[in-house]
Computed example of a mutant assay.
Amino acid sequence: MAEGASIRLDRFLWFARIAKTRSAAQAIAEKGTLRLDGRRIERAAAPVRVGCILVFPLYGQVRALRVEALPSRRGPPAEAATLYTPLEIQRPNPVDGIESGA
Rank of each mutant, 00 (worst) to 15 (best):
2 A>V: 14
3 E>V: 12
3 E>F: 06
4 G>E: 01
6 S>K: 09
7 I>R: 10
7 I>F: 09
9 L>Y: 03
10 D>M: 03
14 W>C: 04
14 W>Q: 06
14 W>S: 00
15 F>A: 15
15 F>S: 10
18 I>R: 06
18 I>G: 04
18 I>P: 00
20 K>Q: 13
21 T>C: 05
21 T>L: 07
22 R>W: 01
24 A>F: 06
24 A>P: 08
24 A>N: 11
25 A>R: 00
26 Q>Y: 01
28 I>T: 03
31 K>C: 08
31 K>E: 15
33 T>C: 11
33 T>A: 15
34 L>D: 04
36 L>A: 07
36 L>E: 07
37 D>C: 08
38 G>L: 02
40 R>T: 15
40 R>W: 02
44 A>Y: 09
45 A>F: 09
45 A>G: 15
46 A>V: 03
46 A>I: 05
47 P>S: 01
49 R>S: 13
50 V>L: 02
52 C>Q: 03
54 L>Q: 02
55 V>L: 11
58 L>N: 09
59 Y>E: 14
60 G>C: 09
61 Q>V: 12
63 R>A: 08
66 R>I: 07
67 V>M: 05
67 V>R: 04
69 A>T: 05
70 L>D: 04
71 P>K: 05
71 P>T: 07
72 S>Y: 11
72 S>A: 12
73 R>Y: 08
74 R>I: 05
75 G>Y: 06
76 P>R: 13
76 P>T: 11
77 P>K: 03
77 P>F: 08
78 A>T: 14
78 A>E: 14
79 E>C: 07
79 E>T: 11
80 A>W: 08
82 T>G: 12
82 T>H: 13
83 L>N: 00
85 T>C: 12
85 T>D: 06
87 L>V: 02
89 I>Q: 10
90 Q>F: 11
90 Q>Y: 09
91 R>G: 07
92 P>F: 11
94 P>Q: 10
96 D>C: 15
96 D>W: 13
97 G>Y: 06
97 G>W: 08
98 I>T: 12
99 E>H: 11
99 E>M: 10
100 S>N: 12
100 S>W: 12
